[in-house]
């Protein structure tokens, strides 16, 4: 069972919000003693997701949580936007697929960087992406 120990929310509406957001995640990750490589993976994943949110939905909210499951601590990030939504999630998760002008490794690449990855989307309503990175995972 996953327990939330600490919760924080940031709203991301412009490109300049990205760097303070990354720094905030770094603070939390350092606090729970996450190693440098896992920190880098988590922040890079967060950076990809927040960029998607800005590009496709003009921003949104991110919840940052410190979670624990058994003996493992970790960080959970939930990216919530009210954008156009993703019509075919499976297609979006395929390597090499992209509708924007990025390299097309956004979602699948991001998924490889984190321990848990979840996406829920409704066309016309918005998208929520939730990722968890365990301290040692």
């Amino acid at each position: 069972m996953m327990v939330t120990l600490n919760k924080d929310v940031m709203s991301i509406v412009k490109e300049q919000d990205v760097i303070p957001f990354r720094n905030r995640i770094k603070e939390y990750a350092t606090k729970i003693g996450m190693g440098l490589v896992n920190q880098t993976k988590l922040i890079t994943a967060a950076s990809e997701l927040v960029r998607n949110m800005l590009k496709y939905a003009n921003g949104g909210k991110v919840y940052i949580e410190v979670v624990s499951k058994g003996r493992e601590n970790g960080i959970r990030l939930s990216f919530e936007d009210k954008g156009p939504g993703i019509p075919d999630i499976n297609l979006a998760l395929k390597d090499g697929y992209s509708t924007g002008k990025s390299l097309g490794l956004g979602l699948p690449g991001t998924k490889r960087l984190v321990s848990e990855f979840n996406i829920a989307s409704e066309v016309g309503k918005g998208t929520t992406v939730t990722v968890v990175k365990w301290k040692n995972g």
Binding site: V37, T40, K41, L105, G109, L113
Partner: peptide
């Protein structure tokens, strides 16, 4: 390039 960055880029597929 920092080791952590190199590892992340490879995992990301870049």
């Amino acid at each position: 390039m920092q080791p952590a960055v190199a590892i992340t880029l490879v995992e990301l597929g870049l």
